[in-house]
Nucleic acid binder design. Structure first.
Lengths: 371, 371
DNA sequence: GCGAACTGGGAAAGCGCATTCCCACTGATG
DNA sequence: CATCAGTGGGAATGCGCTTTCCCAGTTCGC
């Protein structure tokens, strides 16, 4: 990558580099009209493209925002990424992407790389974890983040704070009310008491998953129901599918034992995210079971691409794009911390996959077939 | 963003900056063991993070790959992005993301921004367009790309070459056999001759859409069928939905006119991408029509997230991740141009949404419920 | 009409690093 | 013992740009 430099432009225009710089970038001092015109013409004819690296070096700031996601092809993260991208654009910055398969060690590496590139801020959307095997990685990640913040970097984490991060300066958390919303979902699903509640969750230690599980259990308890059984599996579609296969066998057995498929006996499945719910639903279907006839199921996230799925999936709507936007804005210092600690809200959205549940007041029954 | 510098490390270690540089980065000359150790220790204790901008400036290369997509939340682009990200990682580079709502002007801007950042290569995945209103934008984009290539940049475009780009140096195109695959799809769908073939396409001028339309028509013609009717709409889910609503009314009318729903009378819909197909399917369903009973439908892309959709969507599988990977590798000069002009292949995948069509030899009938 | 306050442009000093020279020193060679 | 190649470290330069400082030319005030 070579290109014409500012000095070349200046020489062609017959001015000093300083003047050229002042013309070509919004400096406080604006040179005279005629000179400015000459410089601009020279730049144009030379096809001058400013070297952002040199600019960044000179004024120590890069106009870069680092984004860390677990998997950019996962619609959950893709939606957040869109919000981040949008906010970055507002700020006139570009986003630098890093994906980590959920491994804190990779995240640490990504943070270091962002720090090396002198990214102005970093948005971390990969899920936080407290699994024992991640302990070491987490503390290293925390150390790296602390260092980054100490050097003046801004960090925004979606969901939960990074375990062990202690920096107070420049460290922001966009809280997602996973637990509270799961409580509400459980409350809705508890209205018509099902025979059995099952939660398909991710590995123990994944905050997002654990919070949702905890909230759901609380909601059931508040309704006077016993805690749901928990199936731990992978935090993705195939995890949901596997759990679904296992559940299908049990539902079958139960049905053959003579139980009818009435509400009182139907099993109610809560998958901690939509993708897992879809996987589970696919498994039930492949085993010849029907939703909501043989079992009802709900997910979490309200992934856009999945809205046309049939039976329409009951879920908890989360403003993913807004989450990304807000994290990015906060990291840019555009949102006062105390002014709005966290304005992320979601809502329970009951659809056909939990048919039979009577929606209580305040919960809108949304159709998803509207274009 | 301030941070400790190489000189500070050098001073602490009691060596010259040159030596410190040689130790901390894989230079050709490796200083002595003891010195190296001292420098590393100093770097560690200072929490030294090399300034990639300065490094880039000094050796004029940035380790950055620019990626342009239309919308990162669109599963099609998200999948490509994953491949790009993966390949970038292989190369030890980071990806810089830009989204443009399909506007060539935005793409031009993104290319300029990448050039300013001295990105080593650029991957363009946004769809190429030849619409008259994009003419100006396209030629500016082409000029910008030419300049970038002339300065030594590498460009890989997914699908079609940018209209007007003339640089031969460093300009790569990863061809996607849209037309050929659409021919094959049409051939399959022509086996049991339907009453009427309809294509739901994007706006005229969008290459991806136009290629697929052309291919489909060619396939029909080869089978001795008259060309399909074409409905132009937006290149996204809601475009598909709208077209679906219009089609539903006609199907309804036809049915009420006394036509039975036999193969000979069923309408066959080809939406030029999966997302549009899903939209159309949702529209038909909301109008009380059933697939494949009242109409059969096929899409294109084989989007992963959509595989659990019911009725399972017949489509053309495209190795999206591989496309992203290959584009990235090619732009990095890791794939000989002549050696493999384009190794992207896809295949027709018939599923339940086109039930009634007898698959011919060589086309595997894939189930999508396998986990 | 003369000094003071501006104005607008240029010279130069970095920003943090890689790299090319250059030099002092070592050990081998004749 | 003198010479030479070889080794390992440092000084210095430059990557392309911003910005401070400086200076000559103007305009203003009294």
């Amino acid at each position: 990558m070579v290109a014409s430099t500012l000095s070349e432009v200046a020489r062609l225009a017959g001015v000093s580099p300083a003047t050229a710089s002042r013309v070509l970038n919004g400096s406080a001092r604006t040179p005279g009209q005629d000179i400015a015109e000459r410089v601009r013409a020279a730049a144009e004819s030379l096809g001058y493209v400013p070297n952002a690296q040199a600019q960044g070096l000179a004024k120590s700031s890069s106009g870069l925002i680092g984004l860390i996601v677990r998997d950019i092809a996962d619609p959950y993260f893709a939606a957040i990424a869109r919000g981040v991208q949008e906010a970055a654009r507002e700020q006139g910055r570009m986003v630098l992407l890093a994906t980590t398969a959920g491994a804190p060690a990779d995240e640490r590496e990504a943070v270091a790389a962002f720090a090396a590139r002198r990214a102005d801020s970093i948005v971390i959307a990969g899920s936080r974890s407290a699994r024992p095997e991640d302990d070491e990685g987490n503390s290293e990640l925390a150390a790296e983040l602390d260092r980054y913040c100490r050097n003046g970097g801004q960090v925004a984490v979606v969901g939960h704070a990074v375990v062990g991060a202690s920096s107070t300066e420049g460290y922001h958390v966009v809280t997602v009310p996973n637990e509270e919303l799961a409580v509400k979902l459980a409350a809705e699903l508890a209205v018509s008491r099902y025979g059995h509640y099952v939660i398909i969750g991710g590995p123990a230690g994944l905050f997002t998953s654990d919070d949702r599980i905890r909230g759901f259990q609380r909601g059931l308890a508040a309704a006077g129901l016993p805690p749901a059984e928990i199936i731990r599996t992978e935090f993705n579609r195939s995890g949901g599918f596997e759990a679904g296969v296992a559940l299908a066998a049990r539902i079958r057995a139960s049905q053959e034992a003579g139980n009818t498929a009435g509400d009182a006996k139907r099993i109610c499945i809560f998958a901690v995210n939509d993708v897992m719910a879809i996987g589970a639903a696919a498994a039930l279907r492949s085993e010849g079971l029907r939703i909501p006839r043989d079992a009802i199921i709900a997910g979490f996230d309200d992934i856009e691409t999945l809205r046309d799925f049939r039976p329409a999936l009951s879920t908890v709507h989360l403003p993913l794009e807004e989450i990304g936007r807000q994290a990015t804005r906060r990291a840019a210092g555009m949102i006062g911390e105390e002014a709005a600690p966290s304005t992320i809200t979601g809502h329970v959205t009951l659809r056909r996959s939990t048919e039979g549940v009577l929606p209580s007041e305040g919960i809108s029954r949304m159709s998803s077939t509207d274009s």
